[in-house]
Design a protein around this nucleic acid. Structure first.
Lengths: 145, 145
DNA sequence: TTCGGTGCAAAAGATTTGCATATGT
DNA sequence: ACATATGCAAATCTTTTGCACCGAA
């Protein structure tokens, strides 16, 4: 069974907060970690139900919130307004194809410096950010007339 | 009556597309332009209803989509997932206070250059982007213990 | 007169909540 | 045993749609 580290992190978080370690929570975390990134709640629900048809929507929603709290997942709202979850990992930003929906991640430290300068100018204390570039991916450019 | 330019732009758009120039459309545009930025549909609906209690939600939603089409407004999805509209103007990005909700706009050309470099690396053609910094505004930092 | 527009109510989609039951601790 | 978690159904919230009626072109 994979994802030892995450399972341990979940257990630690649950214990620390006097919450219970249930089959469902572990299961949803597993499915989430195994799946490709940027899942909607619906995606997760469907995947979970394949093996465990008795799990409800409610539990998926509640568990994803919990995983975000525990620092194991992050929530994203891209421009279509649908909530997506992603595995928490090193910070990065996104290139989103508005034709096929593909999401490409990228990292860029140079931008982070610039952000700090902007924040200072307005007196903000930055805690996090989003930086998303929308356009056409290479494949979709090919299929353009 | 203010906002001559926008009203004219609306009229031109309507005519070009064989759509009708109605009281409601003009009214909603007026309210939108007069209000402070980053309005939700709910905000708009409430404002419009103050003077014209007969206007329906439906019309507000439909009109805002139309204004976006016409290039008079832009749609934003910040991290709370609620759709907000903003007056279309020179491109800029946002600093969002996650305590009081204040939104500060900023512009930064340097970042744009970096974006182009990233896009080239992945072969994307960028059409638009979002860049949002989340944190605490100066006022909210003051009131921190 | 004709076709698009409006407003209501109902539908739809995503997410949350109430509650009785089930299950970790 | 006790407190939290679960799953269902119902409730919410935001946005969209169907439809009869209204109004601009």
């Amino acid at each position: 069974m994979a994802h030892e580290a995450e399972l341990k992190a979940l257990a630690a978080y649950l214990e620390k907060n006097h919450l219970k370690h249930t089959k469902q929570r572990e299961l949803i975390l597993q499915v989430f970690l195994e799946a490709k990134r940027h899942l909607t709640s619906e995606d997760l629900y469907q995947s979970v139900r394949q093996d465990h048809p008795n799990v409800g929507y409610t539990t998926v929603y509640r568990t994803m919130k919990l995983l975000v709290e525990a620092g194991l997942a992050t929530e994203h709202h891209f421009d279509d307004g649908i909530t997506r979850y992603e595995i928490e990992q090193r910070h990065h930003d996104h290139l989103v194809c508005i034709k096929c929906g593909k999401i490409q991640e990228f990292e860029c430290e140079m931008i982070e410096d610039t952000q700090n300068a902007i924040a200072k100018r307005y007196g903000f204390r930055i805690l996090r950010h989003r930086h998303e570039l929308y356009g056409h991916c290479p494949e979709c450019q090919q299929s353009e007339s």
